[in-house]
Design a protein around this nucleic acid. Structure first.
Length: 227
DNA sequence: AATATTGCCAACCGCATGGCG
DNA sequence: TCGCCATGCGGTTGGCAATAT
């Protein structure tokens, strides 16, 4: 039986107070991120390290972009989701200032519905046989999907592994998708995306995170599958 | 005005993974 | 090679606000 990630007794749960936020911010400003398990004690917080990490990453980090998603962000999410599946951290990594939790929530509450309304299955991005023709179209979302239907768009091979672990099953599912035959459409994978900013630590030389297939050039980072 | 329903989002939980001894 | 530990990730839940009845 796995031990709990932290001592459940004596730790606060639920919403964070302003005082707690401030303590965490102050601590990280001085000491930086790292060793989340020891941060609560060091910062004088009655929280588990996991909770601190989540709070910092999803809410307190100074570079978080809050508010509605822009049109191009939506388009990017759709493309990336078609490509990667529910790899929210990877998708968020391509959206400067957005967190995986935010992208996930936005997908589940907005995008999913939007696609369904358009007669598109949000899980596999296939157009349903009986599209809901009542929907007002096309907006930019349907335009994205339409672009994904273009012939010859899917020239790109999926690399052996993008992130080594879980992406591989996204890859296999994508391969199923793209090789499924005439029933499925091809995806436009021509995505060249600028490096989001420092939070892309997995390309940091000091922390090589198994993204051996990731390439950098001219200040842009492009996943091999997007090249 | 009161109650029920729905939607959103912050936070939690459990599992997977990688590093290290 | 194995086991432990810390961290990261994705799915799920709980609580609050907005909306409908």
């Amino acid at each position: 039986m796995r031990k709990p990630c932290c001592d459940k007794d004596g730790t606060n749960k639920g919403a964070w107070s302003k005082q707690e936020d401030q303590k965490l911010i102050d601590y990280i400003r001085v000491h930086g991120e790292g060793c989340w398990r020891s941060i609560p004690k060091a910062a004088g917080l009655h929280r588990c390290g996991k909770s601190c990490r989540l709070r910092w990453i999803n809410y307190l980090r100074p570079d978080i972009k809050r508010g509605n998603f822009a049109q191009d962000e939506e388009e990017l999410i759709i493309k990336l989701h078609a490509l990667l599946g529910n790899r929210w951290s990877l998708i968020a990594g391509r959206l400067p200032g957005r967190t995986d939790n935010e992208v996930k929530n936005y997908w589940n509450s907005h995008m999913r519905k939007k696609l369904l309304n358009m007669g598109i299955d949000p899980n596999n991005h296939k157009v349903n046989q009986i599209p809901s023709s009542q929907q007002p179209q096309p907006d930019h979302v349907s335009a994205v999907v339409a672009s994904m239907n273009e012939e010859d768009a899917c020239k790109t091979k999926i690399p052996a592994d993008i992130h080594n672990d879980r992406v591989s099953d996204a890859r296999s599912s994508l391969e199923d998708e793209t090789s499924a035959g005439s029933g499925s459409f091809n995806l436009n994978l021509d995505l060249t995306i600028a490096v989001p900013w420092p939070s892309l630590t997995f390309i940091d030389e000091e922390k090589p995170r198994t993204t051996t297939n990731e390439c950098k050039s001219d200040g842009l980072t492009t996943l091999p599958l997007f090249q």
